[in-house]
Amino acid sequence: MKSRHHWLFLTPAMSHLSIFVILPIAFSFWISLQDWNVMKGTIQYVGFSQYQSLATNAQFWGSVVNSLLYTALSVPLGMAVSIVVALLVSQPIKGANLFRTLYFIPSVCSTVAVSMMWIYIYLPQTGMINSLTKLFGLKDIDFLNDVSWALPALAFMSVWTNLGPRMIIYVAGLLSVPPAQYEAAQLDGAGAWTRFWKVSWPALAPTNAFVLLTGTIASLQLFTPVYMMTKGGPLYSTDVVGYHIFVEAWKKFHLSTASAQSFVLLAVVALCSWMQWKLFRKQAESYE
């Protein structure tokens, strides 16, 4: 039966989407085709020349590389840690729910507050990590001010903040495996390690795809921790593309350039998502 009233149900969401999402995006695209001098109030159509000049903007592409690096560090590490934790909390033990709840807390806290806490954790000498490593006689590291440590430090923090949701998704994935499969494997004499690789891991393929995809999208758009903790430094080592665009738009007020950069970021995100999608579909099929 054809519905006649579907538009009534869609109207609130569609009007919201049009006014507060699509209109701003369309406006951004229009701006990206102009050369808008906000201060002077002059505006001039320049076609795609903003995009053309981006092609040779080394700093912009440097920030894209930083974002890709950050993503390559934080997402796989985050997934691995989440799987291990999910395996632990999905054991049939008392209090598993309590631990799940506890582990979820960091992800519901405001990024602003969490960033301030992590600044302390990473402080040289008095910071949490350096206080502990000092006990083992390790060298003091000023994590957030060290060119080679700042980006990994941010990635490590993201493992902590995103642990909760990822863990829950993996728990769901693990629980969806029929217990009979484990029992069969156990009868074949498989140990815990083999059981995980032979039974759980293949079953987690769709979950992995989901976590990887959403994690990648979020990581490529990283902004708030950088704004709060490193401001892109030291020496641009944490100048990720989300922050780069922010500076372009809000500090330099080059709105046309920033808009063009946002659409390039969109393309990068879409490309990464598409590649992962292809890869995982293939993998998922090969297991079937």
Partner: peptide, 9 residues
């Protein structure tokens, strides 16, 4: 050093 200053806060 800047690190020392940051550590003292």
């Amino acid at each position: 050093s800047l690190s020392q200053a940051a550590a003292a806060g």
